[in-house]
Design a protein around this nucleic acid. Structure first.
Length: 320
DNA sequence: AAATTCCACAACCGCTTTTCT
DNA sequence: GAGAAAAGCGGTTGTGGAATT
């Protein structure tokens, strides 16, 4: 677009904020609110750009921001939602009260990501980096150099599967029942591939809907991995084959070609109606309708919709 | 005690999306 | 509907303090 970012104006201060600047910004925002950040610095008497003021307010000064160490529960929630959604920090933050996306992102990059790597798991997919990872990390014939705890890995994988399957942060118990529903308005709507085909874009949106519905569903669903199912398959009328991890207690095994039997439900029609007729605004209605049907198999979504070419699986996996 | 390395986190940057005119 | 401005988002960098040598 060629716009000049406000931060490039000469003479504007950069770097860490002083307490004096913080006071000015807080005083201004508390008095006048924070509409039109561009005009805030001048009115608040700050030599900062509006963008910098906005970030400072959102990430640090805003009231009701929780700071300090993450609790075990928060840690668990982050892992599960990341397994499900990937680097969608703003969506993840929406489900951790009083935590900012920036804080969660930092926590992930400095803490959780390293933990995953140490465990031989890919921080993007949460899956073992390679098939013989267990041997490499001492899980094979007893040459446990670092003696990586297999139970720990199993727990991690279990958490990933659990997150994929049903987003257990939304289960009843503790305060989680009071957590907000997923913010549907934040569902990414851009296509995950270069095609401008509107139907494909909608299909991508619908898939994202499904992933999020899984996370909001309080009832157990089939252990279908939303990260493992190719975005675009032409499934057989009866079943399809995907992989699945199994925790046997002492070790993990990966089963290929897990057979998921399809069950009949009304979802297909709802989704088809959505794709054919809906405006984007209808998405929330469609999601709610979809949710209530409790579709048991994702294959229902796409059965009989083989007339549009889809993206490759890689592009899918990074965009759920 | 000084120098170096490591780490956490605040802040910046560039891009995309949304809103406004 | 088009263009511009504002807001939002995620990746990356910079900084300061803690830990280590």
């Amino acid at each position: 677009m060629g716009r000049i970012p406000c931060c490039e104006k000469v003479g504007l201060k950069k770097g860490p904020w002083t307490s004096e600047e913080d006071k000015k910004l807080v005083a201004y925002v508390e008095k006048h609110g924070h509409r039109n950040w561009r005009s805030v610095p001048a009115k608040a008497g700050l030599e900062r750009c509006g963008k910098s003021c906005r970030l400072r307010w959102i990430n640090y000064l805003k009231p009701d921001i929780k700071r300090g160490n993450f609790t075990m529960e928060e840690d668990h929630t982050i892992i599960q939602l990341h397994a499900l959604l990937g680097n969608k920090w703003s969506i993840i933050a929406a489900h951790l009260p009083k935590r900012t996306d920036n804080e969660i992102k930092n926590y992930w990059n400095t803490n959780v990501k390293k933990r995953l790597i140490r465990m031989g798991l890919d921080p993007i997919t949460h899956k073992p980096i390679k098939t013989n990872t267990f041997e490499a990390y001492g899980g094979g014939h007893g040459q446990s150099e670092d003696n990586i705890n297999m139970n720990h890995m199993a727990q991690w994988e279990s958490a990933r599967i659990e997150a994929e399957a049903r987003g257990s942060v939304f289960q009843a118990g503790s305060h989680s029942s009071h957590q907000p529903q997923l913010i549907l308005s934040k569902i990414p709507t851009q296509p995950c591939f270069s095609s401008s085909d509107s139907l494909s874009t909608k299909r991508n949106t619908v898939y994202n809907m499904y992933a999020l519905v899984l996370a909001t569903n309080h009832d157990p669903v089939l252990p279908v991995s939303t990260l493992s199912i190719p975005y675009w398959q032409t499934p057989s009328p009866v079943s399809t084959n995907i992989g699945r991890f199994t925790d046997t207690g002492s070790s993990l095994s990966y089963e290929e070609n897990v057979n998921i039997t399809e069950t009949s439900c009304q979802t297909q029609k709802i989704i088809e109606d959505y794709m054919l007729n809906s405006q984007d605004d209808d998405i929330i209605v469609a999601v709610e309708a979809f949710r209530t049907t409790r579709c048991e198999s994702i294959q229902e979504l796409f059965r009989g919709s083989n007339d549009v070419e889809g993206p490759n699986n890689d592009s899918f996996e990074r965009n759920v």
